[in-house]
Design a protein around this nucleic acid. Sequence first.
DNA 1: TTGAAAGCGCTAACAT
DNA 2: ATGTTAGCGCTTTCAA
Lengths: 333, 333
Amino acid sequence: MDKQTVTIYDVAREAAVSMATVSRVVNGNPNVKPATRKKVLEVIDRLDYRPNAVARGLASKKTTTVGVIIPDVTNVYFSSLARGIDDIAMMYKYNIILANSDENGRKEVQVLNTLMAKQVDGIIFMGNEITDDLRKEFERSKAPVVLAGSVDDTGKTPSVNIDYVAAVKEAVKNLIDRGSKRVAFVSGPMDQAINSQYRLKGYKQALAGAGIDFDESLVFETDYSYQAGQSLEPALLAANADSAFVGDDELAAGVLNGLTDAGIDVPNKFEIVTSNDTKLTELVRPKLSSITQPLYDIGAVAMRLLTKLMENDEVEENNVVLPYGLMKRQSTK
Amino acid sequence: MDKQTVTIYDVAREAAVSMATVSRVVNGNPNVKPATRKKVLEVIDRLDYRPNAVARGLASKKTTTVGVIIPDVTNVYFSSLARGIDDIAMMYKYNIILANSDENGRKEVQVLNTLMAKQVDGIIFMGNEITDDLRKEFERSKAPVVLAGSVDDTGKTPSVNIDYVAAVKEAVKNLIDRGSKRVAFVSGPMDQAINSQYRLKGYKQALAGAGIDFDESLVFETDYSYQAGQSLEPALLAANADSAFVGDDELAAGVLNGLTDAGIDVPNKFEIVTSNDTKLTELVRPKLSSITQPLYDIGAVAMRLLTKLMENDEVEENNVVLPYGLMKRQSTK
DNA sequence: TTGAAAGCGCTAACAT
DNA sequence: ATGTTAGCGCTTTCAA
């Protein structure tokens, strides 16, 4: 009935060798006489034998799959990282189990547990609020964990990022230097360390550098959505802001369009600089000036770091910081 | 050294029952006396026992993971489907192995093989060129395959789509009815059935319905990228087109911006209607009018269909067609 | 309601 | 260079 599955045993019998020998040729072990190898290969081909990765995983305790936790695949920032992760994973013969978390702590812990149950060899985590619960899970995981584009302020978890503080500082300084008197700080949830500990810090440093007092009323905490940005226009104007640093591109696109649709001239009356340099920045008009980040590379380097951790290779630096840049487009003068 | 892994055997010993009993309580088998269940649960908790999904997979021949082949996660159309897939998968306790294919036939076949080697219980395939090689793989797979947002013109593979012919026909008819004399057909690769067999057909039907002769020079075959669209502007004008149907949103955004940046007034001098109704349509200015598709649902329904196939449930219809719509925004009059 | 025991398909010592 | 033989950790008859 069922397409009869061919096992290593069948191959061994047909080729008149032992299972061990078949296993050796399948795994490229050099200790096989060319003649036998040829014979075995011939039988494998004839029977159309395909090794069962699950059985292999049980016996060898390696599944060659890694778990990837992502807030939302639909967000271009994260999917860009994911693409880098998958490409490098494939290069090193790993597969990816992808799970959306919505940055929901409960979901994250739960997913983490099922990934561990599935015996993944490693985990890449994206998400900006590393709660203690989460950190505890990371620690008791025997599979190494790497953060991609996500910070753990304790620095305990290996990670790949850019220097968010410096990047925001520079971006905001530029705004001020060009004459902006009241720079708004528009960010996602402040309970995420990346916003409260890093970006806000860079913002404050830029203000301090210019001798400007920090003004709480210029801080806009919202969620990462286009709509949220769009509806911010009245508040932004009410606060007398004349420019904004924004922590996410979709959010920034919303801010931009909200302003423009209300007749505000960007960049002449209001400048905007965003954070992630996703392709969205090129789609809108005016195009969004942005901090640039090597998105694909953040994912790729994170995966590469993970392979080293999984294979117990030397790792010089557990917290990799990749270079950022500043790209002037049309939303700044 | 190693965090000692707790096995079902340890639990059985500690609870003074057999492995079979432990297995029963773990799997919610009702044939266990409440008292024993309680005792076992208590030991599981105390030892912090976590069932090994790989061992379970080997013994039960079910891995509760499905493979998902996607052209590129970074494309919002596909990532939107992927999100629907993952949510429903999670709801039914499956995990997703996600693999990017770049719609490259060789890669697709290879990925398909590693997914089968990993004993996935089912596969969701996105990608619009189902070659014979691919179809052959589908057939010899014991795991069921479902296409999401992707057509197999032979209709042999279960799938979830909208009626592309009717949708394009209607979109183009609207353009013509509003006065467009020369509607361009801008699509991705023509070796993809969705373009050559479906969309083009709808386009031709609309022309025929209006008594307009098909003009080869109005067909623009390109790749699915923003840049490709942007650089199409001279050709579009040279062909004397006064409107365009475009097969992909990123591509359409490129066409729109290419035109606008060249000083063409959209929609007054040139109308554009796109195909996928991703969030990109709302980001650009003017906003893109589009065929609407229930993107998330296409993924969700595909995954739901797959669960039925995997569990041998009744399936009324193997080729599900979801409703489409037409959304007028600002790129059409 | 519970247990014994035979696998699932493979890897990895260990022998030879 | 090749074979023998334990497992890997679990599910699943089959008996009791």
